[in-house]
Write a protein that binds this DNA or RNA. Sequence first.
DNA 1: GATGAATGAGATTTCATTCAT
DNA 2: CATGAATGAAATCTCATTCAT
Lengths: 194, 194, 194, 194
Amino acid sequence: MARNVERDALARERQRNNIMENARELFALRGLRGVRIEDIAKAVGITSANVYHYFSSKENLLMEVIVHSQLVFGEALQKLSEGSGSPWEKLVSLGTPNKNRKSYVVLLHLNIALSDALPKELRQQYKSNAINNLKVLSSIVAEGQRQGQIIAGDPLQLAARYIVDLTGFNVYSSTNLYEGLHFRFEDIIAHLRP
Amino acid sequence: MARNVERDALARERQRNNIMENARELFALRGLRGVRIEDIAKAVGITSANVYHYFSSKENLLMEVIVHSQLVFGEALQKLSEGSGSPWEKLVSLGTPNKNRKSYVVLLHLNIALSDALPKELRQQYKSNAINNLKVLSSIVAEGQRQGQIIAGDPLQLAARYIVDLTGFNVYSSTNLYEGLHFRFEDIIAHLRP
Amino acid sequence: MARNVERDALARERQRNNIMENARELFALRGLRGVRIEDIAKAVGITSANVYHYFSSKENLLMEVIVHSQLVFGEALQKLSEGSGSPWEKLVSLGTPNKNRKSYVVLLHLNIALSDALPKELRQQYKSNAINNLKVLSSIVAEGQRQGQIIAGDPLQLAARYIVDLTGFNVYSSTNLYEGLHFRFEDIIAHLRP
Amino acid sequence: MARNVERDALARERQRNNIMENARELFALRGLRGVRIEDIAKAVGITSANVYHYFSSKENLLMEVIVHSQLVFGEALQKLSEGSGSPWEKLVSLGTPNKNRKSYVVLLHLNIALSDALPKELRQQYKSNAINNLKVLSSIVAEGQRQGQIIAGDPLQLAARYIVDLTGFNVYSSTNLYEGLHFRFEDIIAHLRP
DNA sequence: GATGAATGAGATTTCATTCAT
DNA sequence: CATGAATGAAATCTCATTCAT
């Protein structure tokens, strides 16, 4: 019995994540307001009504997606920071496309979309999380500097600069406007090397 | 009888542009679904119904805004290209915030938001216009190379790289996530200098 | 000066008729409510606004069209009744397609449409005009009976019966549903011959 | 889980028919533009919004009503054709007012009103269905001829002639213009008797 | 949990009508 | 007269959300 309860809770959590991931992708592609509950439901393969078994409202789903995305990103960042590999490799890997790359695009979009139309509170929380993430990033940068892989300068400022590059690279890559003209992320951030 | 056909046509065109410009700002920040026709109408100072005197639908308005924005950007670019001033100054000025900067952000947003859900035809047209614009940009780059202001390399590739930077800078600036950490565009593209 | 006034009045009257005729045709084809002022204006080759120089409202235009149509039909009927030609020929000619046939189709449609959604007053007036017209028709029938061209019976009832045939024939002809299966009106009303 | 798919499908179909039948009556009397979705919804006893759960647009609803009406008429005709009773009785019953009579009037109206402004495709389909129905009718006529109840002649042509009469009779009856002057359908088609 | 039906609130769109030129 | 612009009122349509099954 207890087993079933646990199993149910697990299944529920899995479905919640499933929904959030689909929602995140859609929010990323079409903007926070450009997505209908039904779009998300369809992507997941369930009905709109069923979404409400997992999230109390669209607003709530949106918030959870934002927070969750940031959390996931933050965790990945932390893990990356603590993991093995040289700082430079870490920085490169963050921007290099792979199966997880989409998440960053999403974050990106959310950033953008956030500039308007979102509860102050959430926006504030989002901002402070972002800054925390930036600090983790800056620690990688600092370590890179120590190892002579990164140019000198305020690590936080350099981390922000790195974000500019990451952003530009991701948007450029995902819009895919100029066919034939591609970049490797490591070239984009090459100017950070000494 | 008392009508002046030319004047009418001009007034109409002016009002269309007026609406498009207001719509652009709003679409840029909130996306198609995040903007009500009434929002646009209010921004212009007319009635919702009157918007339909100029555009057949919200969807159509968006399309026209996209094309129009690109056109305006292209013209500005062309004018800049032909104008006086050093190539480097031209490149810097394009990214430096001023009353027109928003337009570029918009272009950006539209690019992104609409990578999905855009009529193939328009997307194709958009792409080809974008490439034309890129060519103009590359001519500025080439001139810069001739004058020793820009590093060597394929001008088109460098122009694309410039777009990456411009994009990153614009998004970073407009999201305004990390208060206190700002950049000047000329620093962002400094790596293009010899 | 007086000349000009007259001429103006005449021109005005002509334009009014022009509008009414176009309106009648459209009302006939699409129903009383299926026509927008702009449809009528377009058919005439003027603007919607200009229609209001001739008719105070759509409602008013509709009324005038109805009354006018009936009037025209009544006059034609009267003239036919008083004209030369045998009664049978007269009855045949009324239903036989020619450049004026459309009017009858219109009348027809109006009849139908009238069954709903029209001011009581107008409907009443329309009905009484219709009955007057029926009486004129019945006088032709009666004359036909005197001349041995029409079967015996109450002329009014026979006239009504004639209307049934005329209606059926006109609708059948104008819908043009069964290609290849056509009728001549005189065959439709052949049963009225002795 | 607690859902019964078959039952759901059936209920849906029933509700769709319910809406279509109510819509048909209204469209018949007032045409597409003369009927608001809310009128239909009210007649059915549901909300306007709910109508869109079953039909994608008012236009679409009209189309479906047209097709459906024809289908229903065709089925009734077929059943009548195969049923017991003499051919003559069958022909008479089709035109004799009863709870279903309105449907035919509707068909009529739609025919007329839509001769204009109807998608070519639908119009074509409508025509071919109409001809099929006419053939069924002609089989009744032919049987009537065999039994000596109908005059000689091409059954199809006679069936078409019957339609003229039916049309005229229905329109005449439903407009109700000449009070006191009524007909029985069997008298209208008496000329088809030998 | 999952679904289809149903809804209220709100956004888009239409249209008869007015008005300044 | 004639027109294009503008509008208010109303209709169409969308969508997040609830509910019975």
